[in-house]
Design a protein around this nucleic acid. Structure first.
Lengths: 212, 212
DNA sequence: GGTCCAAAGTTGTCACTGACAACATGACTC
DNA sequence: GAGTCATGTTGTCAGTGACAACTTTGGACC
């Protein structure tokens, strides 16, 4: 082992993500992390000013991955605006399950309250992405009377809530692993149902599809 | 000051709630709490086995208050099932704003993961309350094709998400204090719109009001 | 009214943590 | 090969949660 580790920063981030995924953010300790990696207890300070700084870095990286993940899913879903919007929501929930460490960090209150510019920009980007998709879905007849902002916030809140409830293992009536995909699909369909446009209605019915 | 404090347990809970409301759960320290109250650093241990135990007690008390708060709001809303269901959702979000310490504690991952029987029962009770209300709303024609469980989980997830986003001060596009009530009303109306039953439709239209 | 005793506080201590300061190492530059 | 600067290291400090051992107090009981 050389005196200089070489890529300690990356190793710290990876190992921290693993610890968070296994034992939660509370259980993360800079000293334990350093011990684990085989480096002195003060080494992490060279790369992260303090614990919050490490979490912030993790959240920033995670938020970029989230955007990539979600955009890839939306693109794979095709051009139908309703299908695309739905795919966006499902991908968000899936990300929270596939990368729990990133997701927990991103939504951690302490981190959220002291977000840096990079993290703030990721949030704005998320808002834009969903807003664009919502506008297209509105053009296809969905929720014509609501503002785009309201729709975005509502949709974000819902997928965030679904993710939170899936992360809470003690919640009753939660699906087991085999039914997870179907569960997510049902939940997001309650936000936007890609198969419920005018086609299922007879011609004389109102073309606007106001919800509820 | 007598040697025996008298009602230290209650004072601890109240002061802890105040600290959490002001500075968050992370900032809560048993020693600082004891110092603050003017009692020795080990005194809290007589009443709460450890820090998690104090948080658990706070969460339990909070969950009872939440149920009372929400039921009172629902009862005040009248007998129309849709209005009642809507009131339930709005009250949930309002509780999170009015009693942030309780709400944060209830939804804290660590607390949620190690819930005691009392807390678990409160959760089941919440599920029952919402399920009963959802059944009545379904009988009035709302979302006839969904299972009650799905509706409950979906609704809970959404109000939880809305509460989470309101608690996050850095979120863009969030309402200022004057518009809060209207914002909450709009968000919950997207779950269930109490003013959108069949009455607004002409007679030959489908009586079932499938969403989206 | 004196005695016992358990509940409720106290002091003292331990291991652990995050943060900081001072020092050591080594890679790169000129 | 001297200088310098990023990157590690050692040493230390105050704060924390948890625990053990001791003290005070107010009733219960006779």
């Amino acid at each position: 082992m050389t005196y200089h580790h070489g890529n300690l920063r990356k190793v710290l981030l990876d190992r921290a993500a693993a610890v968070i995924a296994e034992q939660g953010i509370e259980a993360l300790s800079l000293r334990a992390l350093a011990r684990d990696i085989g480096v002195s207890h003060a080494a992490p300070a060279r790369h992260f000013k303090d614990k919050a700084d490490l979490l912030r870095a993790l959240a920033t990286e995670g938020s970029h991955r989230l955007l990539d993940y979600v955009l890839a899913a939306a693109d794979a879903a095709g051009t139908d605006p309703l299908v695309r919007y739905n795919a966006l929501g499902q991908a968000y929930v899936r990300f929270s399950l596939e990368f729990p460490a990133y997701y927990r960090t991103i939504t951690h209150p302490e981190v959220a309250a002291h977000a840096d510019d990079d993290l703030m920009q990721s949030r704005r980007r998320w808002h834009e992405i969903v807003a664009d998709a919502a506008r297209e879905a509105q053009a296809a007849g969905w929720l014509p009377e609501e503002t785009v902002d309201d729709i975005v916030i509502y949709s974000t809140a819902t997928v965030r809530g679904v993710a939170a409830m899936l992360a809470d293992p003690m919640q009753g009536s939660m699906p087991d692993e085999r039914n997870l995909d179907a569960f997510i699909e049902r939940m997001v369909r309650l936000i936007i149902d890609p198969e419920a446009p005018q086609k299922s209605l007879t011609g004389n019915e109102a073309p606007k599809r106001k919800r509820t």
